[in-house]
Design a protein around this nucleic acid. Sequence first.
DNA 1: TTCATTTGACCCTC
DNA 2: GAGGGTCAAATGAA
Length: 266
Amino acid sequence: MAALPRSHTSDAIEHLSKGYEHLTQLRALLLSSSPAKTSTAPPAIQLLDKALHCVTATLSELQTSSSSHHASSIENNMNCTEPCKRRRIQRWTIVTSVPHFDGYEWRKYGEKNIHGHKFPRSYYKCTHNKEQGCPARKTIQQKEDDDCNPPKYEVIYSMHHICKIMGTNTHLDKKYSSTPINNISSTTTTSSSYVLPTSNCQTNSPQPLLTLVTEQVCPMESMLLSAEPQIEENGIENFCTKTSPSTDLDFDSEWAKWLLSCTKKF
DNA sequence: TTCATTTGACCCTC
DNA sequence: GAGGGTCAAATGAA
């Protein structure tokens, strides 16, 4: 990847990270909304997974390159974190107020107090780690500069999911269905507590189903936002089958253009 | 009884 | 040697 000026790179990382956060939240919403009990993931989820893969690959690349050039200079909330130096595996970091709402199943396997941090760091691995050998992991660290509510969490993801959605949304039903879409609860560091996506540091006013706060409009997001009335009328499954891009090539091409425009802008 | 979480010990990297 | 990451037995909840 061509080198960008440092400040531009950090801006690009920050915007990509926001995009990643919105995509994961959209994925969770789609999963919890989909009534399908099929053996394969809905087309929209498959496309979102591809989009997430593109974004995380870019994020990882940008964070790695920026840290290698100026390891200690980038003090924004997307800098390459300590584990990145320890092991040369693909990692990317986002900061979010909803660290658990990313559409995947996680099992907590550890918690540690980290030197110099007020809050403990929690360690999670994919629930399908054993049966499907999925290597995906993440750590969640509550940030200390909490001058707003809800609190912010730094989430470090490592390795991509290779687990397959087995056509049941049981876990999401259990976890999210008990919480009304507009009911924003307090956030804790345990995986048993979830909050739904909302804009940062804003009031707890009701949010529409597909309200995703963003400054940079991506292809999939604009498509879904414009189609929200259709989704509510016809159901998410009909929307997915009717509006998915016709080919993988089309979708990858759109995402490549979007990512490129993000990078060029900075 | 099963499964997820907690927690302390151990291992690995720097 | 210090500190972060992982393992696995103990514990608790459903």
